[in-house]
Amino acid sequence: MNRPPMVMRIKIQNPQHKFGLWLPLFLIIPIALVVFIILSPLILLAVIFLWPRGWGKTALLAPWAAWRVFCATRGLKVDVQNPRDCVQISFV
């Protein structure tokens, strides 16, 4: 498995607005982990409730799958620009 991205960079620019953000994901990950641990009994309840309907496995594996997708975003870069507008999103 890949290492998770450390920083997410967002830059949105148009004649009216200019917005730039460096989001330190390495600081957010521990907070998200704590939130996940707090919510885990609720997730377990949801798994038990959804199991007869066939969605239990999905609910059980979804957090792990979401983590893997998050880790895989490292290196993703979207850059769309014209002389007036600019949108840049990148995961470093």
């Binding site: 870069k77 979207v78 769309v80 014209n82």
Partner: peptide, 12 residues
């Protein structure tokens, strides 16, 4: 003109 540059990791 618009310029687009997208890089998607294969792992994604």
């Amino acid at each position: 003109a618009d310029r687009v540059n997208v890089r998607v990791p294969m792992n994604l």
